[in-house]
């Protein structure tokens, strides 16, 4: 398959390599130095870096500015874009802004409800939903037109992605939902973090049965656990997260000062198991405020060095 965009991530995937992406959250202020340092630390170990968009509805420096910064550092950003805070005018405008800096990857998301964040009294927008945003980016890129129909000069050349949660309810539409996102235009998929590998495998079976892994690149998501407390929190408090009891037990079974190491070990084992799952095209390592451990995870999981592409 020929790449449709100049995206490095796309080239790596189309060349048949297992891709590795990671993510960085922008700061809660205008000092972008920390983000730049986090990204720099993983430069040689990942193919692209997602930049979150006001994740969990907590107000932060915008994803677009942070992506520009990474781009200027010679890194490959993935612009995360949620439909919670902007209408179709603002979304398309920001897409063009990103395209003007040759940001070549976008991940279209609905975004957490603002109830979870620091501005719970705010209005939300939801003019489009995440599927409609996928369609919008594809239309802008492939047809060179705005949603409103007018032509775009120098359309955005973006590799278009979406998120998928194999663990959310209702279970029977998890695969149809992925099919729908792909039909809407998703070319790569980054999944929710996986702790329940068996359930993920069942989902992938359904994905393969419909040949969806041949229509979009599926990057399996992982997040290393830092402590037993974090495991329990993810299990009980985060909607749509599946942390099996045995994972919580394993974390709780080692002394507190060694739990972080255990979390990294679980993450690496998970990656190794996921490498064996047919149809998995790569990995998305979300090390929340723990980016410095990503190089080690990538190396120990046998995913280094990263391929070079033209």
């Amino acid at each position: 398959m020929n790449a449709k965009t100049p995206s490095r991530l796309e080239k790596i995937l189309r060349a048949g390599h297992l891709a590795v992406t990671s993510e960085c959250g922008p700061p809660r202020g205008s000092d972008i130095g920390h983000l730049a340092a986090k990204a720099e630390a993983i430069r040689r170990h990942v193919d692209a870096i997602n930049v979150t968009d006001n994740q969990t509805s907590v107000c932060r420096l915008c994803s677009l500015a942070a992506c520009i910064r990474l781009k200027l550092m010679g890194l490959e950003p993935v612009l995360q874009m949620v439909v919670r805070d902007r209408n179709r005018i603002a979304l398309q405008s920001d897409i063009l802004g990103a395209a003007s800096f040759d940001i070549h990857n976008i991940l279209c998301l609905s975004g957490d409800h603002q109830r979870f964040g620091d501005h719970a009294q705010g209005q939300n927008v939801f003019d489009l939903d995440s599927m409609q945003l996928l369609q919008t980016v594809r239309r802008m890129r492939d047809e060179g037109r705005f949603l409103g129909g007018d032509p775009i000069e120098r359309p955005p050349a973006m590799f278009v992605g979406a998120a998928a949660n194999p663990f959310a309810d209702p279970f029977e539409i998890r695969v149809p939902r992925l099919a729908k996102k792909i039909a809407a235009g998703a070319e790569f998929i980054q999944t929710q973090c996986i702790y329940n590998v068996e359930r993920f495998e069942r989902w992938m079976q359904g994905v393969r049965d419909r040949g969806l892994h041949e229509k979009a690149f599926i990057l399996a998501g992982v997040t290393p656990l830092k402590s037993a407390g974090m495991a329990r929190y993810m299990k009980n408090k985060v909607p749509g997260m599946d942390v099996p009891e045995e994972v919580v037990k394993r974390m709780a079974g080692v002394p507190k000062d060694r739990q972080a190491e255990e979390g990294i070990a679980i993450c690496i084992e998970t990656l190794q198991r996921l490498k064996e799952v047919p149809g998995v095209a790569g990995f998305h390592i979300m090390a929340i405020e723990w980016e410095e451990r990503v190089p080690e995870i990538v190396e120990r999981a046998g995913l280094a060095p990263r391929p070079a592409v033209a």
């Binding site: 609905s110 957490d112 409800h113 939903d129 995440s130 599927m131 409609q132 998120a163 998928a164 949660n165 959310a168 309810d169 209702p170 539409i173 939902r177 729908k180 809407a184 929710q192 909607p239 749509g240």
Partner: peptide, 8 residues
């Protein structure tokens, strides 16, 4: 075109 990933 829901549900979102948070439906539990």
């Amino acid at each position: 075109n829901g549900p979102c990933g948070g439906s539990t």
